[in-house]
């Protein structure tokens, strides 16, 4: 049931960015959730890799397991969820089997995450300066004063005006966009190798979205980080990401360079997603959408996860789960009929 997919060697990607070494290697990651009705698998054998200087997008609808994959990677799963299989190698260290102490030492300087909801993610009763200073105090053992200086520099770097006076303000005194910048600042404080961003712009309006994404891209280049962007936004992926990992019902259905995957999708789900974008439709034509809805976690089929909504479904799809297969350089699809998916 667990599919593993070995990432092709670095440097073979079709894009200019992301030619660095693979620093985050997720291999067969599965996450189980304990529910009153029994154990369900929310993430099933997810594999992908991220390179320095590259943005890789985890794309999928809500409930597809992309956020849970991110939480499992950074070790912040809810108490009812557990990693049941797989490895998450960060520069060679497996985070799944690492001790809590080891993981704490890596959280911040090596791997960090930007959360979605900037209003609740910041602590309402502490100044932003205090919260920005925490990573420096925890990992560098800095004094309050030193860490405050670092916090001000960081605020300046993420584009917060008048950082010297605003450092003593509280989160509610900042706008949504500024709060998101603060979250990014906390995440990049110690220049991590891998930066995960869980829907970092979902709560923001479009102009602010673009600024935030630009900031993330700039920081990625400047600090040579691997960025894992978790999103449901196809446009964002095509603009920002070098590679895309398409997830459906807890599994990876397709992954590869964004241009290739979006240009010639090799999984019917990816194709369905792309077809439902109204941008390509001509005036007067119907908007297309994928019929049906994703399965509930307890109803995910043992064979192909997409069988119930797939236009290409055959008997084999109901009996056998397709393993990810190479369909191009650095491009893989988990479909029995990947050759027949066309745009």
């Amino acid at each position: 049931m667990t599919a593993t997919y070995d990432l092709p060697d670095a440097g073979t990607g079709g894009t200019a960015a992301g030619t660095g070494s693979v620093v985050l290697d997720v291999d067969g990651l599965s996450v189980d959730i304990r529910t009153p009705q029994g154990v369900v698998r929310a993430v099933d054998g997810v594999s992908f890799g991220a390179r320095r200087g590259e943005t890789i997008a985890l794309l999928g609808e809500s409930g597809c397991g992309k956020s849970m994959t991110a939480q499992a990677i950074v070790g912040l799963l809810a108490p009812v969820a557990d990693v049941s299989a797989g490895e998450v190698r960060l520069d060679g260290t497996d985070l799944v089997t690492a001790s809590r102490k080891q993981r704490r030492a890596l959280a911040g300087p090596e791997i960090a995450i930007v959360f979605q909801d900037a209003l609740t993610a910041l602590n309402p009763v502490y100044t932003v300066g205090y919260q920005l200073a925490e990573p420096f105090r925890i990992h560098r053992g800095m004094s309050r004063k030193q860490a405050r200086t670092e916090a001000i520099a960081l605020m300046k770097r993420v584009g917060i005006p008048e950082p010297e006076s605003r450092v003593d303000n509280y989160p509610h005194q900042f706008s949504g966009g500024m709060r998101q910048r603060l979250l990014i600042a906390i995440a990049v404080a110690l220049s991590p190798t891998v930066l995960l961003a869980d829907e970092p712009t979902t709560a923001l309006d479009v102009t602010v979205q673009a600024q935030i994404m630009q900031l993330l891209t700039d920081l990625r280049s400047e600090r040579d980080m691997a960025v894992v962007l978790i999103t449901h936004d196809l446009a964002l992926v095509s603009e920002q990401a070098d590679r895309v990992v398409v997830m459906y019902a807890g599994t990876v259905v397709e992954q590869g360079p964004v241009g290739e995957v979006f240009g010639r999708p090799r999984h019917p789900y990816t194709k369905g997603l792309l077809d439902s974008v109204p941008a390509g439709a001509t005036r007067g034509s119907d908007l297309r959408s994928i019929g049906g809805s994703p399965p509930e976690l307890q109803d995910i089929p043992a064979a192909c996860v997409y069988q119930d909504r797939c236009p290409l479904v055959q008997d084999i799809c109901r009996t056998e789960r397709p393993a990810p297969r190479h369909v191009g350089t650095d491009h893989a699809s988990a479909c029995h009929f990947s050759e027949e998916v066309s745009r």
Binding site: L106, A107, G108, T120, N123, P124, P135, I186, A187, A189
Partner: peptide, 14 residues
Amino acid sequence: SAPYVRLARSTGAG
């Protein structure tokens, strides 16, 4: 269980 505690954990707070 508040999000800010998750944020603190994500930066290595014990």
